[in-house]
Design a binder for these strands. Structure first.
Length: 720
RNA sequence: AGGCACGUAGCUCAGGGGGAGAGCGCUACCCUGACACGGUAGAGGUCCCGGGUUCAAAUCCCGGCGUGCCUACCA
């Protein structure tokens, strides 16, 4: 009503997109252009004076039945001296004036354009400009009507064939070329849209769009990822009036009444009599509003508008709308227009455009194409949580998703991993998470607490930025490769040591705490399994949905513990590498000798000897005096520490030399770019000091490793 | 036709000026007391091509080639 009163809604005769199957008008958006192979027909229109003809080109010969003129470009040299200014329309014999308009392209077709104002939007404009009649020759089902002469009653495609055949028979078809062009199709039923002259209701969107555009330009509404603002801008700038009449049976009926005297009454209440003639014979408009028009009011109409309800006050404008790009115009832009118009404020602060799931070849999934992946089947197969996690992991900004079942299976495995980690955790907690306070934390305690806090901070930051894939992968990495791979293995030692119940309890405490935080962090991505496990976690109350969200406590980040763990993991990795590369059975415990000139490293490793021994499967752990390595041993170099595995008896010296060669070659490849940089004077002069320092430290570390490995290699060679 | 993306391991994809990453797949070994939907170790890359900017380019700029999407009335 308000829009009508302000002149922003009007009724008018225009060419609209008509679906001959749905029997309704469509907006420009609902007409989807699709490339089709059509024909370009060159048809001879004879001059009235009988001397020759003018050839016009058209893709839709059947519309010639509604022609009311032929247009040429006034600049066209071919048509400078025409024999006559009047043509005779073939088949029907109607006389057609030749009009001159710069709109006609000199390059396309024959340079002569047949004008059918009732069946083409541009012809309609031309018709208005030149005062031509508009003859509508088709009915609402796409059949030729009584104005189409002998073609009356034929379907539009049938009519085309007949028209072409008849023209050919009369020698009026000059030629016929194959022609690719984009043709509108009904978004609902894919029927070819027919542009038809018709009286409909329209919204004058210009002023509304200008405001909606400005809101985004001024940042009152932010579109994420930003690249979509271009698209939004483009569309808002080139927008045409919006046809909102629909001849369908669902939707809001347009509140307009027609009186026999010709008066149109638009009213909030049902009018009793015509204000002009007093007549009581009023008929309400049968058309309904486009559903997108109605739903443009959604952000406020759902909260009691036009009343100023408490809900409306509190929740408008909303914080974030999450949607797909294909809805950006249909709905988002229109909610913006209406929100600003009626609420004086944008409907949402952020619009988050998420990725669209496409099929394996990048096609948009659609039922009619038959390339849909049924989420119910997938969830049945891999689990709802796995499916949801996959979508989150794939949801990188600005990119669509080609769904891959392998990835879903990978996340199913992840869910399973968590389930098993939970079994381990719950089994060991023995119903108690509270005991064990007071003992100083072990290295693995400090480390995992530090890591879970870093992860929490990372997840929080990622979610704030709508980088759901970053959040998902941070959690995956932490859960599997830190919590499960390292922490759970390390914590087994205190957990299984019944001789030290206090330490055992302390271990339980940390385990329970970290696992509890992990469940809370995972919950948004994996709601079902985490809730199930939460219910079994001792000390957890209520639903995990309501549990406190871990944001990451900076004071619980412990860089020293992380550095020490890094050393421990490197040494364990070195022993395992030797075991794997030398083909030593996993079950065989190995003697290990360490050598280091760094007291701090030695201290850490000595204090962690039990963990080191357990995870690297070590039979005996000894320290060598510097410069006196064990004679026959495989070796590895980590930062600050050299690792020896004496292999007397079962050692294969050639294999060890080969292993060291490979390792040295790898380091060589790593060190070269850094050495080159340091040899570059420009780098030393212009690069930031910390970058130069970093390169130097890197070169020093790798060089040290290489030296130690080379020394080992030399010793091994002596035994060959 | 115009616009916007994308081209990184065999496949699916992150990253985005200073040490090439993940999942799956692959190779070898292992049913180790949470987990074989698993563990340990490993192989695998001209970051599409060509220029440019820079001390430094997979990353920024320009031009190609290829792919996808969106918009569009050339009858």
């Amino acid at each position: 009503m308000r829009l009508y009163e302000e002149g922003l809604i009007y009724r008018g005769d225009y060419i609209i997109n008509w679906c001959p199957r749905c029997h309704t008008a469509l907006s420009d958006l609902e007409s989807e252009h699709e490339e089709v192979q059509g024909g370009l027909y060159y048809i001879r229109y004879p001059f009235k004076n009988g001397r020759g003809h003018l050839t016009v080109a058209t893709t839709r010969p059947e519309t010639m039945l509604g022609d009311t003129a032929v247009a040429i470009n006034p600049e066209d040299p071919r048509y400078k001296d025409l024999a006559d200014d009047t043509l005779v329309l073939p088949l029907l014999g109607r006389e057609l004036p030749i009009i001159r308009d710069a709109y006609v392209s000199l390059e396309f077709g024959s340079g002569a354009l047949k004008v059918t104002p009732a069946h083409d939007p541009h012809d309609f404009d031309l018709g208005r400009k030149h005062g031509l009649a508009a003859i509508r020759v088709m009915d609402d089902s796409g059949r030729i009507n009584e104005l189409g002469g002998t073609y009356a009653g034929l379907d539009r495609f049938e009519a085309r064939k007949r028209v072409v055949a008849d023209l050919e028979a009369q020698g009026l078809l000059e030629k016929h070329e194959v022609h690719l062009h984009a043709v509108g199709h009904c978004y609902r039923c894919k029927t070819m849209v027919e542009p038809i002259l018709s009286q409909q209701w329209f919204v004058k969107v210009g002023p509304l769009a200008a405001e909606a555009l400005q809101a985004v330009q001024e940042g009152r509404t932010r579109i994420v990822p930003e690249m979509w603002t271009n698209t939004y801008h483009e569309w808002m700038t080139n927008i045409r009036d919006w046809c909102i009449s629909r001849q369908i049976w669902w939707g809001h009926r347009i509140p307009a009444w027609y009186c026999g005297c010709g008066e149109v009454i638009v009213s909030r209440t049902t009018p009793q009599a015509c204000p002009k003639c007093g007549g009581a014979e009023l008929k309400q408009e049968t058309d309904v509003l486009d559903t997108w028009f109605s739903s443009a009011l959604w952000p406020f109409s759902t909260m009691g508008w036009p009343d100023q309800t408490p809900e409306l006050k509190k929740f408008y404008p909303t914080s974030c709308l999450v949607t797909g790009f294909d809805i950006l115009f249909f709905w988002v832009a229109r909610m913006m227009m209406m929100g600003i118009k009626f609420m004086d404020q944008v409907p949402f602060k952020d619009v988050c455009i998420h990725a669209l799931v496409r099929d394996a070849s990048g096609q948009k999934m659609s039922k009619s194409k038959g390339n849909v992946m049924d989420p119910l089947i997938i969830m049945d197969q891999y689990g709802t949580d796995a499916f949801r996690y996959t979508l989150a992991a794939f949801a990188a900004q600005g990119r669509d998703i080609k769904m891959s079942e392998e990835r879903i299976a990978g996340y199913r495995n992840f869910v399973n991993k968590i389930w098993n980690a939970a079994r381990f955790t719950l089994m060991n907690l023995q119903g108690d998470r509270e005991a064990g306070a007071g003992l100083p934390p072990t290295l693995e305690d400090r480390w995992i607490i530090s890591r879970v806090n870093r992860t929490a901070a990372e997840v929080a930051a990622a979610i704030d930025d709508y980088r759901f894939n970053d959040a998902a992968s941070a959690l995956y990495q932490f859960t599997w490769h830190e919590f499960c791979d390292w922490y759970l293995e390390l914590v087994k030692a205190p957990l299984y040591n019944h001789d030290d119940p206090a330490r055992q309890a302390a271990a339980r405490r940390t385990l329970g705490e970290v696992f509890s935080r992990l469940l809370r962090l995972l919950h948004p991505f994996m709601p079902f399994v985490t809730e199930e496990l939460w219910q079994r976690l001792p000390g957890a109350e209520g639903s995990v949905m309501l549990a406190e969200w871990p944001n990451g406590e900076p004071q619980e980040v412990d860089p020293q513990a992380e550095a020490q763990m890094e050393l421990l993991m490197a040494v364990i990795g070195a022993v395992r590498n030797i075991r794997g590369e030398m083909g030593i059975a996993p079950g065989q415990a190995l003697p290990v000798v360490l050598m280091s000139h760094e007291d701090s490293a030695r201290q850490v490793l000595e204090s962690q000897a039990p963990r080191l021994t357990a995870l690297a499967k070590i039979a005996s752990l000894d320290w060598a005096v510097e410069g006196e390595p064990p004679a026959q041993a495989a070796s590895a170099a980590v930062a600050g520490v050299t690792v020896y595995v004496p292999l007397t008896g079962l050692v294969d010296f050639a294999a060890e030399v080969a292993r060291l060669d490979k390792e040295i070659a790898k380091l060589e490849k790593e060190i070269t770019p850094s050495r080159n940089k340091l040899a570059n004077e420009g780098f030393l002069a212009k690069a930031p000091a910390e970058v130069v320092e970093k390169e130097k430290a890197k070169v020093a570390e790798i060089a040290s490793k290489m030296e130690r490995l080379a020394a080992s290699r030399q010793r091994m060679r002596a035994f060959m």
